[in-house]
Design a protein around this nucleic acid. Structure first.
Lengths: 341, 341
DNA sequence: TTGTACGCGTTATCAA
DNA sequence: TTGATAACGCGTACAA
């Protein structure tokens, strides 16, 4: 930081009081036009930059919001962050970025630091491992606005902006069924996470609504990554050697990529033998040998919406708590064998 | 921000002075053990969180660093940011993230805001269009540490952490030459940026060292994006209709992607008619119809190194200005037609 | 060991 | 229209 020009210094140079200088610089009405001009010129000449820290101390407002994400470099979060930055920039807020690395302890520390910095509000997508929600509660009860996005914690009175995982899963499963597939497997994530539950639910509902029996043996836990997808699919194809599933709904694109690999290795082709679809519209999805049908999540918009909601909560006392679910979009490519020609 | 507990309030509750409470909380030696314990208990009970804003005002140190990037969601920058966050977290600094959207005016505004927030230092990767370096100079001359990363501005006395663009460009051009190509075009970035200069230099040096004449007509400015790559390549192929270059070195992968499109549109095949290589190892590079030979940049490490350098400059008066170049790695794929079988 | 006075840069308030 | 004073929350320097 070091020694910057202050209002007082400008005042001294001009033989005025700091207060008058302050008024001129903040463009208040009650300053003589000529004095104002003198002040502004001198300020420019001296290279004055207002000190937000001092302002914050007196105004009790930092125009800063804190963001906590599990991973910055995941394209989904990177895009959401860009959306957030877009909105905060518009609203003249700054953004303090922290990342939890999916680690509860680190997340706590980040939140604590954000409180110390007296951020006006916090946007958070929780780490996978977090079990203790008391800190979130304390924040909600304090004066700091809190909005969850993507990975939300329910029942503590905070707003939540996320994608509608269930309807996305429902739609894509339904799409598979609509093209005549009946034996449809699901590669899913760990069930303690809402996101996994919701996608599984959507899958099951679609089967149900179409009168297809749910076969639990066709539901395999794969985690979130390629390797897990490969293993789960490999296991499935080994178990169902002679009568493999006709289609697969993977809980996300990386899992689908891994599963595709396993399908090829078992000598099947996509989509002729086995159709497969994913979720998230990873940047690689369209570039696969057989481009992947998937569900696009509005990551950028999600960030924007979350930031907008947060700023509203900051600036408006009685902005209501609400859950905002953004709709997903089905992206049909070749891997499901149901593309219109 | 709102009304948080203060030292004074704790002091009042306990019948002590604010100063004693301050000492206890900052774990100074000169406090009675018992008093200290009483204070710490009371502080916990009242939910005290130190006010960094007030601390900063008196200490003239914000423990905050500002980051300015052209795009957050570009995987290269997202990874670099993650590296930066890793280091700042370790060093107990927070990170204010801004993005310029490649826009000079917006970058200026971001820098101005960062100054107002009295950040201890700034990490910046400049926007493409920036021509006026006076603001950078003013920052360097002020007390705010400044470190450029990836896209640097030279000659203003700021440190720069980047990949060794020249050797990377040299190596990949050399690789092309080693496979018999002689007529090699270059699609380059704006020459006011070091990154563009260096890659051009590496290209020229490789030609020189192999006794190939440099043909300035084969060097076209393309900018940093797909569209610019498409246009530049299109222009080149139109000009050299009957005798197109045998190979192309694009200054980065997106430019290469655009150029590939143009090559196809002109009816040429890759690499049989025209070989092409890029720079940066974008996540899509390996997934193109013809996978792209490119240069891998250590983005995460680059962020870390830049942040480390910045923190050193902040904490150590006479930390020298230096250029740090990280080595790149050649990634050979099909698009250069020189893959070992 | 504990307390008092003062200052960090700014603004609100009241007085001139 | 302008200025003096106090306050925001904390830490330094000194005194008790």
């Amino acid at each position: 930081m070091g020694s910057e020009v202050t209002l007082k210094q400008i005042a001294k140079e001009l033989g005025l009081s700091a207060m008058t200088v302050s008024r001129a610089i903040n463009n208040r009405s009650n300053v003589d036009e000529k004095t104002k001009e003198r002040i502004l010129n001198k300020a420019r000449e001296m290279g004055y930059t207002p000190n937000h820290i001092a302002k914050s101390l007196v105004s009790k407002k930092s125009y800063t919001i804190g963001v906590v994400v599990p991973e910055i470099a995941h394209s989904f979060f990177a895009e959401a962050i860009q959306g957030i930055e877009e909105v905060t920039f518009e609203g003249n807020y700054q953004l303090i970025l922290t990342h939890s690395a999916e680690n509860e302890e680190r997340e706590k520390q980040a939140l604590q630091t954000l409180k110390s910095k007296r951020v006006d509000g916090i946007l958070i997508s929780t780490a996978q491992t977090v079990e203790d929600h008391s800190l979130y509660k304390r924040i909600v009860e304090s004066d700091t606005a809190l909005v969850f996005f993507d990975r939300c914690v329910e029942g503590i009175g905070a707003s939540c902006v996320s994608v509608d995982d269930r309807s996305g899963a429902y739609n894509i499963t339904n799409h598979l069924i609509g093209h005549g597939y009946k034996k449809i497997a699901h590669l899913g994530g760990p069930l303690n996470l809402k996101i996994s539950q919701e996608r599984l639910w959507g899958y099951k509902e679609a089967l149900n609504d179409n009168g297809i029996m749910i076969d639990d043996d066709l539901i395999i836990e794969s985690g979130f990554r390629e390797k897990g997808g490969y293993n789960a699919m490999d296991q499935l194809l080994t178990a169902y050697q002679d009568h493999p599933p006709r289609a697969v709904f993977a809980m996300n694109d990386p899992v689908a990529f891994g599963a595709m690999e396993a399908i090829y290795n078992h000598g099947f082709s996509i989509p002729e033998d086995i159709a497969i679809v994913g979720f998230s519209d990873d940047i690689r999805a369209s570039l696969m040998k057989t481009p992947l049908t998937t569900v696009r999540q509005p990551s950028y918009d999600l960030g924007k919406r979350a930031a907008q909601k947060l700023i509203k909560m900051i600036e408006n006392e009685d902005e209501p708590v609400e859950n905002i679910d953004l709709l997903t979009e089905l992206v049909v490519r070749e891997s499901c064998g149901c593309k219109k020609q």
